[in-house]
């Protein structure tokens, strides 16, 4: 298994190349973890003799077909995966930080929403990851840089939030490792969509227990140029192309 870096969740900026899909938990000569955890992919037609009418039940549906359908709807993603929603009442915070020679520009919002879908009831190191999902979206019009004029410039000129109101990260959980003090280091791979441009990204998050849910802290860098966000010449001294994003939010079991 790939080792997840320690320290603050961070990755090099850019990251336009998506890594090849890996079989999670695969060691040299070892079976992939998803097989070990007993979540085989199903082919609804495997082993079914469609010409055999003997097993039809009262509904007129052949028994093997009914069983196959049942297995499909009761697959891990549909039946066993625990769903967590972002707790919008928690002290969530999304912060972007632009280091520039003259001034550090910081924008903050608490308007983050989304969900996490696990394969089991709780997050565990090395747990099965097939079918997991991490979906987050940030309401960009709510970002506050501390100056109304700067907010308007950011909304209208750079992020164009009227057309692209949300920044979205839609990913699958790629790796889970136990870090110190009950904290899990989670790597998620997926598409980061900002300003209508989607880039494949891996994002690292530290996840710790919070009641029945979790507290999630993620940090990563993006290049504005990767997302076709203009930086006007008059602003070159103000904004750097590289922007650090920090996401702190709570999730709780879906109601």
């Amino acid at each position: 298994m790939n080792q997840i870096p320690s320290g603050e969740p961070t990755l090099p900026a850019g990251g336009t190349q998506r890594r090849p899909q890996q079989l999670h938990g695969a060691q040299d000569g070892a079976a992939p973890e998803r097989w070990e955890c007993g979540y085989p992919e199903l082919n609804p037609l495997d082993g079914i003799d469609l010409t055999n009418n003997k097993n039809w039940i009262d509904t007129g549906v052949p028994g093997p077909l009914f069983l196959a359908s049942f297995l499909l709807v009761s697959s891990p993603m549909g039946a066993f995966g625990q769903e967590f929603h972002v707790d919008r009442d928690a002290d969530n915070e999304v912060r972007f930080i632009s280091q520039a020679p003259i001034e550090e520009v910081v924008g903050v919002t608490d308007r983050i929403d989304g969900y996490i879908l696990l394969n089991g009831p709780r997050l565990e190191a090395g747990s099965a990851l097939e079918g997991t999902q991490l979906y987050l979206e940030v309401d960009l019009a709510s970002l506050d840089t501390g100056l109304g004029l700067r907010n308007r410039h950011m909304r209208d000129n750079y992020l164009e939030v009227k057309e692209f109101p949300y920044a979205v990260f839609d990913a699958t959980i790629d790796r889970v490792e136990a870090a110190a003090c009950g904290v899990f280091r989670v790597a998620a791979q997926g598409g980061l969509n900002i300003h209508g441009v989607e880039r494949a990204r891996e994002i690292l998050c530290d996840v710790s227990e919070r009641g029945e849910g979790y507290w999630v802290q993620c940090a990563f860098d993006v290049l504005l140029s990767d997302f076709d966000i203009d930086i006007p010449k008059m602003m070159f001294l103000k904004l750097a192309n590289e922007v650090r994003l920090k996401l702190n939010f709570a999730v709780q079991p879906a109601p």
Binding site: M77, E83, E137, S142, K162, P255
Partner: peptide, 22 residues
């Protein structure tokens, strides 16, 4: 079941509200 799996987000989560008004 194939239709159910084919949904974009087979989850219970729904966006809580509209985006912040500009």
């Amino acid at each position: 079941p194939l239709g159910a799996r084919g949904q974009d987000r087979p989850v219970r989560w729904q966006r809580a509200g509209d985006a912040t008004e500009i």
